[in-house]
Nucleic acid binder design. Sequence first.
DNA 1: AACCCGTGGGC
DNA 2: TGCCCAAGGGT
Length: 366
Amino acid sequence: MKTRTLLDGFDIEQFQLDLIGWFEKEQRDLPWRKDNDPYKVWVSEIMLQQTKVDTVIPYFNKFIEQFPTLEALAEADEEEVLKAWEGLGYYSRIRNLHAAVKEVKEQYGGKIPDNREQFSKLKGVGPYTTGAVLSIAYGIPEPAVDGNVMRVLSRIFLVWEDIAKTGTRKLFEAIVRQIISRENPSYFNQALMELGALICTPRNPACLLCPVQAHCRALQEGVQTELPVKTKKTSVKQVAIAAAVLKDEHGKVLIHKRDSDGLLANLWEFPNCEVAHSRENPERQLEKFLKEEYGAIVQLEKPFAVLEHVFSHLVWNITVYDGKLVNGFTETEQLKLVDEREISLYAFPASHQRIWREYKEKKTGG
DNA sequence: AACCCGTGGGC
DNA sequence: TGCCCAAGGGT
């Protein structure tokens, strides 16, 4: 007896022709598509993780201008590299990429590995990035399954598995291994993603414009808007933060470098702490924190801003105080007094860029 | 396997 | 406004 499979009745060759033909005609003109330099492909793939194309474009152009080659990035210092990533988010991406690029320079003579075994061992390189770089830069038929590909294929093959679950990706990789073009795996993978971005969108997919509509089982069944199945996450934790812009008698500003692990690792910030919902004033709690943690005696004034900053997994409710640095403290690599002009030299997360913007507006605005 | 890790835009 | 979304990886 024969087992029914997902691919029964599926015309693989025609699908490849329709998909790649559409991509050749309709693909967007993107800066990382000007050549297939493995370094540039790699950088673009890291930047594009969980990040929209429109957001990435200016970062990519500036990054490549600043670090045109793998060697240039490998030799750059950490602060400079982190500054280039400022505002992009998921900062472990750049820390891992920098480490990985150094590894390639030292262990592989600067040549990015062209096989799964070696390339996927590099820091920050997972199953998706491995397939993307190997197929796009080297023409190797490896699956590159991202959110787009899972959405597109779940509709084409009527897959009802929950794509929010970690293990589901493997199912789609198995499908791609069976249908990927051996002649042009680069365009095949890119076309699946491009289709997901332009036509087979999460809501209101443009099925009438779709180059592979004849192959789509979800469209045939009229259930394209019910796929993919994706369970939603629970609501995020709220955290109260008290922060301060502190100046000494010379008008210099106190900034602090965050820990090398965890949230916003290695980025600079204005001194702050989480405040508990206790009877003690937030000001008191912040003063105590600054004294105990930094040895800084401060005079806090009224808060000049209250900001909400939403992360993917938590929310900061930040009360920002104006303040004077009354007593000395020990300046270290992690704790610095800097001139206002020098603030722009340090990499701050978006939340603290907002704090500084509010502060400047308040000062210049009156 | 579930959770941590950013940000900005669309509806 | 609140929620969802985006070319994921590490632990």
